[in-house]
Simulated assay, not measured.
Amino acid sequence: MPTPLDRRMFLRATAVAGGTAAFAGALWHQAFAGPAQPGTGPYGALLAADANGLQLPQGFSSRIVARSMQRVAGTRHTWHPAPDGGACFPDGAGWIYVSNSEVPLVGGVSAIRFGADGAVTSAYRTLNGTTLNCAGGATPWNTWLSCEEHDAGLVYETDPYGQKSARSHPAMGRFKHEAAACDPDRKVVYLTEDQSDGCFYRFRPSAWGDLSRGTLEVLLGTGTGPVRWEKVPNPQIWITPTRDQVAGAMRFDGGEGCYYAGGVCYFTTKGDNRVWAYDAAAERLDLAYDDDLVTGAEPTLKGVDNITGAASGDLFVAEDGDDMEINLITPDGTVAPFVRVVGHDESEITGPAFSPDGTRLYFSSQRGQSGFIGGTDGVTYEVTGPFRR
């Protein structure tokens, strides 16, 4: 069985190429020498923790919008345990934030509806009876793809507005799903797999906007540089796991978050603390960040996990553990902490997502201060401030 990509492979490759990794797409406005490096971020240093235990830059403020196993304020809905992947959707003058529940058997998805002034107006369930719903991704047609993280896991398409029943999509494969990102230019959905020898996939639906039928493909290559795709023979019912069905499939050490913008799909791998950049037009794979390749300073970003982006081109990367930060990576290749959660040492940050107008960032501490694995102490936050747009 192939082994995960070796870091030394990349170091050797960049040495031959002169050490330069160029990135395409709207997010990366200029090439920079090698993966992103620590520096001073656009918002400055983090201040002392606020009343909610968040360290934020000057000009930003926070509030807690939900706590696991407690009613969402102003509603009769009890927020789920172990909040994980999330996304925001427009709702008239307001918006909706959806969040997965990464617990077995009852899992599912909950939603919070906000009015134009940011006040919570309702909260409700959009998916029930699934298991270990980890991350996922929003679609261009305003549905939420909720991914199950177990060996026979499915992708469920849910309605953030609570009007339509959720549907499973076995054609997208049965494996340990993590996150999804839609590419409307090529009409495909990228998928990560949370295995130490996992793969990176794309799903080609037979008709864009309908994920019930289509072809699952896996990425092939030998490291950074040109890559290609090949069809997975049996994505739905298998004796040989999906990741082992195609010889030469690239291996990634614990696939996590996935985010697409400007022709590039960014995805993270937690086992080696990397942020990958797949240039979809050129079919080329590069590294946007690798903590092993940080020079001259201690890496501020470790335990890479969920990822999202702002209209400015900044990537926001959440940490699983380490010092419980969301770090941003700017288009010019600077890595800097944006927020730190204090006193949640046994937790992880999950579900970062911006409101449609880009002025509010939502995320959760999955296990809260207690660190209880069942996630009954989870906390969901909102940060408001002068985000670059």
Rank of each mutant, 00 (worst) to 15 (best):
residue 304 V to D: 07
residue 246 V to F: 04
residue 253 D to I: 10
residue 99 S to H: 09
residue 173 G to E: 01
residue 7 R to F: 15
residue 80 H to D: 13
residue 44 G to F: 04
residue 337 P to H: 05
residue 97 Y to F: 09
residue 239 I to G: 13
residue 302 K to S: 08
residue 50 D to E: 01
residue 251 R to N: 04
residue 111 A to R: 02
residue 63 R to F: 02
residue 358 G to S: 13
residue 93 A to N: 12
residue 254 G to P: 13
residue 35 P to M: 08
residue 207 A to V: 14
residue 322 D to F: 12
residue 41 G to H: 01
residue 223 G to V: 09
residue 74 G to P: 01
residue 224 T to D: 04
residue 337 P to D: 10
residue 83 P to A: 04
residue 13 A to M: 11
residue 220 L to P: 02
residue 153 G to R: 06
residue 338 F to I: 03
residue 38 P to M: 02
residue 336 A to G: 01
residue 211 L to S: 11
residue 7 R to P: 06
residue 210 D to F: 11
residue 48 A to E: 06
residue 155 V to C: 06
residue 278 Y to A: 09
residue 360 R to I: 13
residue 265 C to W: 07
residue 25 G to A: 03
residue 213 R to C: 07
residue 102 E to T: 07
residue 322 D to G: 05
residue 335 V to T: 11
residue 107 G to E: 08
residue 375 G to R: 14
residue 270 K to L: 15
residue 112 I to S: 00
residue 149 E to V: 10
residue 339 V to T: 02
residue 195 Q to F: 12
residue 63 R to E: 09
residue 296 G to S: 10
residue 31 A to K: 12
residue 360 R to L: 05
residue 198 G to P: 07
residue 31 A to E: 13
residue 261 A to N: 11
residue 11 L to V: 15
residue 389 R to L: 08
residue 11 L to A: 13
residue 287 L to E: 03
residue 240 T to P: 09
residue 132 L to W: 10
residue 266 Y to H: 13
residue 280 A to G: 12
residue 83 P to I: 00
residue 176 K to L: 08
residue 77 H to K: 14
residue 157 E to P: 03
residue 387 F to D: 00
residue 328 L to E: 01
residue 197 D to N: 05
residue 80 H to C: 14
residue 111 A to N: 01
residue 131 T to D: 07
residue 199 C to K: 11
residue 326 I to G: 02
residue 227 V to G: 02
residue 108 G to V: 12
residue 286 D to S: 13
residue 353 A to H: 02
residue 241 P to Y: 08
residue 171 A to W: 07
residue 385 G to M: 07
residue 327 N to W: 00
residue 306 N to G: 11
residue 20 T to G: 11
residue 345 D to N: 12
residue 22 A to C: 12
residue 27 L to T: 12
residue 188 V to G: 00
residue 140 P to K: 03
residue 93 A to R: 12
residue 64 I to P: 07
residue 132 L to V: 10
residue 71 R to N: 15
residue 146 S to W: 10
residue 153 G to A: 09
residue 70 Q to A: 09
